[in-house]
């Protein structure tokens, strides 16, 4: 039995459909991601789960109880916001103790719990600091502690890492995963960053224009995109039309199909008689990205860095792709 169930959730603002009949199931203690481009409706969906918005239609069931129209205060659902949303008039301790004070916990208990949680997020020394004196990463850890301390049934993450620098983002990501794992609190994580979703999630869905494009485990979604949107947005795959598949891959598909090939699976070698030209080579550290041009179409190939590529810009090449690396996608 799933812990969180969304049934046919729809929502429109000013006549524009933002969510279109969303169905989702999240298991207990699972780390579940919703990934999609900006404007796809993911934040609205999160706010509906939190009770900050009401859906036009549909039901939400949490832990066996319908909560669709329950007030946000009574849902036992916490949110970690992108911009932290710490209370500026309170210090670190007061921010974290806020929820426990509302539940009228004993003073000594609150103090002990706050100290414990601050140890977990490695911020013990900042207990009495005003929140604006903290760095972005520290503020986000306080924001997380403020939610976890209440042991909610569900934590919602609204792009919590987006405001952080790259390196801090990677560190905090690992920390987040550890804390979620330890606390075993069911988590729904919203992001536009597919690598975040892939690395953190037990299960994920891809959302576009208010519609779920695909559900599954990160590896399934990445390796077996069910549609062009997922193939491009999640896997950054190359998409070949019927004609291109025949010409370049020697693969016969029908009109209602395309072929998708991951960038790292697209290999090539020099071939003077070929129609494919290397139009650019971009070195980016660990990998090198080759842009290959066939007529008006550009394909990408990503290859681990080697110092002695024998390919140069304007070289003619032909593609070499193992048959099992083709994914044929049905168009609807």
């Amino acid at each position: 039995m799933s812990f969180l169930i969304l049934e046919k959730i729809s929502k429109s603002f000013n006549g524009i459909n933002v969510l279109n009949g969303i169905n989702l199931e999240v298991k207990k203690s699972e780390f579940f991601s919703i990934v999609g481009p900006s404007g796809c409706g993911k934040t609205t969906l999160l706010r509906i789960i939190a009770g900050l918005e009401k859906p036009d239609t549909g039901r939400i069931i949490l832990d066996g109880k319908e909560i669709t129209y329950l007030e946000p205060q009574k849902r036992d659902v916490g949110i970690v916001f992108q911009n932290y949303a710490l209370f500026p008039n309170m210090n670190v301790f007061e921010n974290i103790a806020y929820g426990l004070k509302i539940k009228k916990f004993d003073k000594a208990v609150i103090e002990k719990k706050v100290i414990d949680i601050l140890n977990k997020v490695q911020l013990s020394s900042k207990i009495n600091s005003p929140v604006y004196s903290l760095s972005g990463g520290e503020q986000q850890r306080v924001s997380l502690a403020r939610v976890i301390i209440n042991e909610p049934k569900l934590i919602l993450f609204d792009e919590p890492l987006s405001n952080l620098d790259y390196l801090l983002r990677i560190d905090t990501r690992a920390e987040l995963k550890r804390l979620q794992h330890e606390s075993e609190i069911t988590s729904v994580y919203v992001t536009h960053d597919q690598s975040e979703a892939l690395s953190l999630s037990d299960e994920m869905v891809v959302l576009n224009s208010g519609i779920i494009m695909q559900k599954g485990k990160p590896t399934e979604v990445y390796n077996n995109p069910a549609n062009i949107f997922t193939a491009e947005f999640i896997s950054h795959s190359n998409i070949f039309s019927k004609e291109e598949s025949l010409n370049l891959l020697n693969l016969e598909i029908n009109e209602n199909q395309v072929t998708s090939v991951l960038q790292e699976n697209l290999r090539f070698e020099n071939e003077d008689s070929s129609d494919i030209v290397v139009s650019d080579i971009q070195f980016s550290g660990m990998f090198t990205e080759f842009l290959l041009k066939f007529r008006d179409k550009i394909f990408k190939s990503v290859i681990p860095y080697e110092s002695n590529y024998d390919v140069k810009i304007n070289d003619k090449v032909k593609l070499i792709i193992a048959k099992d690396k083709f994914k044929v996608i049905e168009l609807n």
Partner: peptide, 10 residues
């Protein structure tokens, strides 16, 4: 988000 945070914290 600050008022939303307060409300979701109960």
């Amino acid at each position: 988000n600050i008022t939303d945070a307060s409300i979701t914290l109960g």
